[in-house]
């Protein structure tokens, strides 16, 4: 299934603090890599669909992150805002191979805003 995607190694899982995030600068803008308490890794555009807050700076809990600006809660797997808020952060395929974190940047999908930010 991955044949259409070219994977780029951006670092190792250990580089990302558990329950934390690191940023990768890309042509699509900043991508935030998240590592959960159970060591799953997710990648989202580093922009909250609400007001563009840097999600990488939020508190990671379960498979969610809370935006530091207005406390929107974003699901890490889908990028969707957790109800009642509506909106979706851009997201990017990511996989971990032998501890290396790889991004499928070509398959990046931009988000859609809530709260009239289009």
């Amino acid at each position: 299934m991955d044949q259409s995607i070219s994977w780029i190694t951006v670092g190792s899982v250990e580089d990302i603090p558990r329950q934390g995030s690191r940023v990768v600068r890309t042509g699509f803008g900043d991508i935030a890599l998240f590592r959960t308490v159970t060591d799953e890794v997710y990648a989202l555009e580093d922009r909250c669909p609400h007001a563009g807050g840097p999600l990488s700076q939020g508190i990671v809990h379960g498979a969610r992150v809370t935006c530091p600006l207005h406390s929107w809660v974003i699901d890490l797997a889908s990028g969707e805002a957790v109800g009642p808020d509506e909106g979706c952060a851009g997201h990017c395929p990511v996989r971990v191979v032998d501890g290396a974190v790889q991004l499928g940047l070509a398959a990046f999908r931009p988000g859609r805003g809530g709260c009239g930010h289009g």
């Binding site: 780029i8 951006v10 580089d15 940023v23 890309t26 042509g27 940047l105």
Partner: peptide, 11 residues
Amino acid sequence: RHEFAPLAQVG
């Protein structure tokens, strides 16, 4: 230290 620097620059 990791708080203040990006992990990587690609593309």
